[in-house]
Design a protein around this nucleic acid. Structure first.
Length: 897
DNA sequence: CAATTCACG
DNA sequence: ACGTACGTGAATTGA
């Protein structure tokens, strides 16, 4: 069975452009939203229709044979926006890479090509689907040709139109669609039609007279204004009909076999998708059918993409017990190390082997071999801090080796960290992605070597070694390019003196872990459980029925349909039931407050009691988080498996969780030190605002001081409400203020919020100047920087879309502040670590929570640490205002507050 | 797998 | 008129 699908490429890319508003772009800032939307649609069509032959047609150039008939054809059309026109070559490249035939022909439009092919297909009784958003193509429908008309705007669903559906919808045959256009005209193509005749009138006339020609012969039967209009526009109607007629005799040099499609060529498609940063689509590309797809592989039009297998083979060796001795001698010349591992959590990941690459050699060492006595020199080399190692994500490698009983040291250049500094919003998450970014030959994806999800299986050593060698080869090629960029961006100190040393410190903290008492959690969980049960039954009683309170849908039905409470806010999928909404509803029905309490406890129970219990290692009673050092856009760390940066503190019930976090040795103490107002202090420094600096130089309560200045009152006159407002304004300033955001936060009107902001800027003029200047800087450079030269690109600063541009502007204001604060605590960590080592202290740094460091400290070091830690933190970076760190300690993290 | 909600700084 | 506060991770529901 053959099935031909033809796609109006121009039409689809336009709809995708206006339908997908997400700010998608390539690494170098070219927009890709339309290409993305096109791909989504294409993938859906492939899945739904499973065509055996495909053609994507485009309009070639501006002028067609229709202009000879009517020079004004398509006149007055808006010029294609440049953000879209740049996407045409990207789309065409992608279609080619997917192995799909595309065609355009001078003087003809996409419609004409499709019409001609549809005629041929119809004659051969070949099932044919035409995809477009343009109603014109409905004229092509026939017994074998169906039109999938795009619904609404954007690239959502399609409405299939055969002759029956057209009859049902318009009461017309497909060919009468041409008459319809002749009468109605088409403003987008500048086809005039008959002025004053729209769809309704045109349909009425056609139902009566059948065709434009017949209508014109019978104008005497019409009356009034309509008769006048039609008689006055006879020629226009006939011309319009001619223009709307799709030409079905285009000379096509296409061969049927050229259109055959047997599934995507992933080898060719994946690199292109990566370049477009469509990482999420990669898994959605269906594999070519290996057996019967063979004949479609010989597409003469498709440019052969560079394939890993086509390149000269590498000198890959698989080590065994006999060759380990020789390999040991080679170690000093190893430049890149790469581990083949499996699993997201590095504390639990499997390790199957190591690739050691230097000069032209690639040595693969199966993990098992490292246990043999002959491997001792390799283990020594691995843990030698003086033996430098380069690689991709050495932090992770360190952890995986650690849990396999192997020590690691000497990380010199981590390509993942370099990539992160060069562009922290970089989406490349593995070596393959990086290879694409640096324009190296494509690598085979890990998924293709290993299989994904349940299908995962380690391949044989030869396959693994070859795959690993290609990655090591790529890393080797990427590093010099990164060195150059780091140099050019003046990031050498940030990289070599901050991020690289920090990476080892983080690994140490993670390996150390923090002790958590499961008994404490279980006891607290038991109390929560009783309360949750009680709240649950109260909720059921109030609702008059049982339902799943955790289901927002069911909860919404109960609150807003059954109990009739007023819906405040809608989400994409129904009623919103978030805490803000519920708090507004609380006065209206008793059940609401109970639901809020239930939500709070359910969250504590599932995430922090049950979730944390699962992460405790029974042998050591410790949890080991994993800090992602190359993830956030601002330079902060993030914490996973478990996240120890969001342990409850704001509400007392949750705060009790912290009692379970204890020292791992008897007699020791938990000590915590946190920066006070670090972001506002950074702002004071960066903005050089006199008032803000003065406030910190005198160590004033910054929110009270802000309230005094904004409201023009004395210290004594500042009430709690004024301080609260001032605090919200200060937060807003750090986030990149907007009146709307502040109004939402304070529950005041936008005008009132705008007034606050105006007052604030009148007082803190240096801050106002900074906010202005930083946005200008972002516009000029395309990025903003922190004090330590960390950068973040903001391409959307130029967006025409207000929301996108505003977001970029707020980000420009916030990132240097949040990012510099992140720089500072990272500096402090490196310095604290150095001091602990220099002094030979036993105290250990365990956690970082953005502005806080947590340690465990033996009795005899407590007094020292109480001054050493805050002093080091305060001296981490010299600003024009003092940094301040508060320290506290206790038997557990709850007490160290 | 997306959407919703909520925990933290 | 537009429509969000900045930065994260995890659990749950319901396709």
């Amino acid at each position: 069975m053959t099935k031909l699908m033809m796609i109006d490429g121009n039409n689809l890319i336009y709809r995708a452009f206006y339908g997908i508003t997400a700010p998608l772009q390539t690494a170098d800032g070219r927009p890709t939203n339309a290409v993305y939307g096109f791909m989504l649609m294409l993938l859906r069509l492939l899945q739904d229709e499973k065509p055996t032959h495909i053609l994507v047609t485009f309009d070639a150039g501006k002028v067609t044979f229709r202009h000879e008939t009517f020079s004004e054809y398509k006149a007055g059309r808006q010029k294609t926006p440049p953000e879209l026109s740049t996407q045409f070559p990207l789309l065409k490249e992608l279609i080619e890479a997917l192995g799909i035939k595309q065609y355009e022909l001078a003087n003809y439009e996409a419609d004409d090509i499709m019409g001609t092919l549809a005629r041929l297909a119809d004659e051969q009784e070949c099932e044919t689907i035409i995809v477009s958003g343009d109603q014109d193509v409905l004229q092509l429908a026939s017994a074998h040709v169906r039109i999938n008309l795009l619904k609404g705007k954007g690239v959502g669903d399609v409405l299939p139109h055969g002759p029956e559906q057209i009859m049902e919808r318009f009461g017309l045959t497909p060919l009468q669609i041409i008459d319809l256009k002749g009468l109605m005209g088409d403003s987008s193509d500048n086809i005039p039609g008959v002025p004053g005749v729209g769809e309704k009138t045109a349909l009425k006339l056609l139902h009566e007279y059948g065709s434009v020609e017949n209508l014109l012969e019978n104008t005497d039967k019409l009356k009034g204004k309509l008769k006048e209009r039609i008689e006055d526009n006879k020629e226009s109607a006939l011309l319009s009909k001619k223009l709307a007629t799709i030409f079905r005799e285009v000379p096509l040099p296409l061969e049927w076999d050229e259109l055959a499609y047997g599934g995507a060529d992933r080898e060719a498609a994946v690199p292109v998708l990566r370049q477009l940063q469509f990482n999420s689509l990669i898994e959605k590309i269906p594999y070519a059918d290996g057996e019967d797809g063979a004949e479609t592989d010989e597409d003469p039009f498709a440019e052969p993409a560079p394939k890993a297998a086509d390149r000269p083979p590498l000198d890959v060796r698989i080590a065994d017990e006999d060759t380990l001795g020789e390999l040991a001698e080679f170690l000093p010349r190893v430049s890149v190390i790469h581990a083949e591992t499996h699993g997201d959590n590095p504390h639990h990941a499997e390790l199957v082997g190591l690739m050691l690459h230097g000069e032209e050699r690639y040595d693969y060492v199966p993990f098992e071999l490292l246990k043999s006595p002959q491997a001792a020199p390799i283990l020594e080399w691995l843990e030698d801090p003086e033996a430098p190692k380069n690689g991709y994500d050495l932090h992770r490698l360190d952890l995986v080796l650690h849990w396999h009983g192997i020590a690691f040291a000497g990380a010199a250049f981590d390509s993942q960290l370099a990539a992160y500094l060069i562009d922290p919003t970089e989406t490349a998450t593995n070596v393959s992605g990086l290879a694409v970014k640096y324009e190296l030959p494509a690598l085979t994806e890990d998924d293709e070597v290993y299989g994904r999800g349940a299908k995962f299986a380690w391949p044989e050593a030869e396959t693994l070694a070859a795959h690993s060698a290609r990655k090591a080869e790529a890393i080797e090629a990427i590093i010099p390019k990164q060195r150059e960029l780091l140099e050019r961006f003046e990031m050498n100190r940030l990289f070599f003196e901050l991020e690289m040393p920090l990476s080892r410190i983080l690994a140490d903290m993670e390996k150390q872990g923090i002790a958590v008492n499961p008994e404490d959690l279980e006891k607290l969980g038991g109390e929560f459980e009783i309360e949750i049960k009680r709240l649950q039954s109260e909720i059921y009683a109030h609702a008059g029925m049982e339902f799943n309170i955790n289901s927002t849908r069911q909860l919404g039905e109960i609150l807003f349909d059954k109990l009739g409470l007023p819906a405040k806010k809608k989400t994409k999928t129904g009623y919103s039931t978030d805490a803000k909404v519920l708090e507004e509803l609380a006065p209206q029905h008793e059940i609401v407050q109970i639901i809020l309490q239930y939500r709070q406890l359910a969250k504590l129970q599932s995430t922090y009691i049950e979730g944390l219990l699962k992460e405790i290692r029974p042998e050591t009673r410790k949890v080991h988080t994993y800090y992602r050092q190359a993830l956030t856009a601002t330079g902060r760390l993030s914490s996973q498996y478990p996240n120890l940066q969001n342990i409850p503190i704001r509400l007392e019930e949750g705060r009790k969780i912290r009692k379970a976090f204890v020292p791992s040795e008897p007699g020791w103490t938990i000590l915590a030190a946190d920066y006070s107002q670090i972001e506002l202090r950074v702002l004071a420094h960066i903005s050089d605002d006199a008032g803000l600096k003065d406030a910190f130089l005198h160590d004033m309560d910054i929110h009270t001081k802000t309230a005094m200045d904004v409201f023009g009152v004395t210290r004594e006159e500042v009430d709690s409400n004024m301080r609260r407002s001032a605090k919200a304004v200060n937060f807003g300033i750090v986030y990149g203020i907007s009146d709307y955001g502040l109004s939402q936060n304070l529950g005041i009107t936008r005008a009132e919020a705008a007034n606050f902001i105006e007052q604030y800027f009148a007082v803190f003029q240096g801050v106002q100047q900074y906010m202005h200047d930083i946005v200008e800087e972002a516009k000029k450079d395309g990025f903003v920087k922190t004090m330590l030269e960390r950068r973040r690109y903001l391409p959307e600063i130029h967006a025409k879309n207000f929301a996108l541009r505003s977001f970029a502007e707020r980000t420009a204001m916030n990132t240097p502040i949040q990012g510099t604060a992140a720089d500072i605590i990272k500096l402090a960590m490196v310095q604290v670590d150095a001091v602990l080592n220099e002094r030979g202290l036993k105290s250990r740094m365990l956690l970082q929570v953005h502005d806080e460091l947590v340690f465990e400290v033996p009795e005899d070091e407590l007094e020292l640490m109480k001054t050493l830690v805050p002093e080091t933190m305060e001296g981490a970076l010299k600003l024009s205002v003092p940094l301040k760190a508060d320290v506290s300690f206790g038997a557990n993290w709850y007490e160290a507050k």
